[in-house]
Design a protein around this nucleic acid. Structure first.
Length: 108
DNA sequence: GGCCTGACCCAAC
DNA sequence: AGTTGGGCCAGGC
């Protein structure tokens, strides 16, 4: 079972605790592929087709901005899911992002 | 087998 | 302090 970079990203994304968020770069670094943050986001592109489903809504950019919200269906779903977990989102930005930030390198 | 794309990040101006 | 540009890796056609 050679799990590709995508699968590794999915695993880490699934490990994100409820009510917490992480960044693409953090996941990329945790996988040892620092610098390929783009790949992480691209991998999330298949998150909707991944099994089990990946909580991509818990993954944002380093600024706490919901960059990929436009890729959700509907786009507002991402913010809705985050709010459901107790996360405050305003203007597509996670409030208190630093406190809610979950670093796979530190927490894992 | 080669070229293009992509939900990003960081450094420099 | 805000904006611009380049770099990075892997998948798809």
């Amino acid at each position: 079972m050679e799990q590709t970079f995508y699968d590794q990203v999915f695993e880490v994304a699934r490990l994100i605790p409820k009510g917490r968020v992480t960044s693409y770069g953090a996941i990329a670094r945790s996988l040892g592929s620092a610098g390929s943050a783009r790949m992480v986001g691209y991998a999330m592109n298949a998150a909707g087709t991944a099994h089990p489903p990946v909580p991509a809504h818990r993954v944002v950019n380093s600024s706490g901005l919901l960059t990929g919200k436009f890729h959700f269906t509907p786009p507002e779903l991402m913010q809705e899911l985050l709010e459901q977990e107790g996360i405050t989102v305003k203007e597509d930005k996670i409030q208190n992002f630093k406190a809610l930030f979950w670093d796979p390198l530190t927490e894992l």
